[in-house]
Nucleic acid binder design. Structure first.
Lengths: 188, 188
DNA sequence: CCTATACGCTACGCAACGTAGCGTTTTAAT
DNA sequence: ATTAAAACGCTACGTTGCGTAGCGTATAGG
């Protein structure tokens, strides 16, 4: 905080007049930066759109302070239930909503299987990104998004006869976070 | 640390005689607990083996202190290059090695595509777990592993003709971390 | 019995978050 | 231009938590 104040040419107390805590500031930064990624352009093809989503996320995480902010937020979210709630509401569900838009388009185009769960897609697309960012340290080149989407395509695509995936989300939880259209029926 | 000392019925200074820092202790706990997950039993089927791996990981993260420890390590790894190096060496590469065993078995059985990269499999299997653990907060039921593996199967299985995936890992990095058998050729 | 090693304890140093209080500057409205 | 209100800067402080110093005490092991 002292460092932030100094780099901003501002007194530390001034920061604390706008943001109640360090976590609060971090969350504000995060939400502000998320604006750029949240719009989902219509590219005419689902592969291109999903790739764009991944690439924008990777770029944001690796070329801005977002990566650092996210890393710092992990233990905070774990320790502060209120922050966790806000984060899920403002960030996680938002990402799922964005993916939902793309999934809906893809289904409408007949490119994606009709019972595809956007939350599952989110897990599969963002999970590897954060795993590399937080733990593995493996770099993500400019072709990462393209290759990840290409790899996962057989899971998403409409042609094959794959079993749907719910990842064992209990109905309560899903309902609590998602008041949208009812998801494709999921066994288990 | 005070709390750990108290719960252990030991003076704080005694802990610091064995572990140089809080991070050092956390890493020791992590490595110790990792022993349980590191053995890969022969179950006769790749799906069962991969599912077991995922389930053990999920169980460890959600029913022990491991989850908390991992969350606390994320910013530490980001801030301490030496810790990051040790973590990648002792944990990340170890997980890849375990997955490699299963992938090799699967390829030998003809269940998995021959050009499957264990690192990619690791990303896809562990990424969603940590994403849920660290950020999304979505619960992982007892059927999570089964469903995740079932979902990803079309990516792994030998039958379909999917494009391989390297996720844009630059050769240097892969070589640096993995002195094992050369990976299946991957287009840029 | 005696010595080396390990342990407990108090006290401290230090960094970082967050706050109190007060004076000063800027804004904005009359 | 005056004046009230809001915002800012600054110093100082309280608090927590990590990590260390120093010293006395216990506990092996020969």
């Amino acid at each position: 905080m002292e460092g932030v104040a100094e780099r901003a040419g501002v007194a530390k107390t001034t920061i604390y007049r706008r943001y109640r805590s360090k976590t609060d500031l971090a969350l504000a930064v995060l939400l502000d930066m998320l604006e750029d990624v949240s719009t989902q352009p219509y590219l005419g093809g689902t592969v291109a759109e999903l790739t764009k989503l991944v690439d924008k996320t990777v770029s944001l995480m690796t070329t801005t302070v977002m990566g650092m902010v996210m890393k710092g937020l992990v233990p905070e979210i774990a320790a502060d239930p209120h922050l966790a709630s806000v984060y899920r509401e403002k960030v996680v569900s938002r990402r799922v909503a964005e993916v939902s838009v793309l999934v809906a388009r893809g289904i409408a185009r007949g490119e994606l299987r009709a019972d595809l769960d956007p939350e599952v897609v989110t897990d599969l697309l963002l999970g590897p990104i954060y795993y590399r960012l937080f733990l593995s340290g493996a770099p993500m080149s400019s072709t990462f998004g393209t290759q990840l989407v290409a790899t996962l395509l057989p899971v998403f695509a409409a042609t094959q006869g794959n079993p749907p995936f719910s990842a064992g989300v209990d109905p309560d939880f899903t309902e609590r976070r998602h008041q949208g259209a009812s998801r494709a029926a999921v066994p288990g």
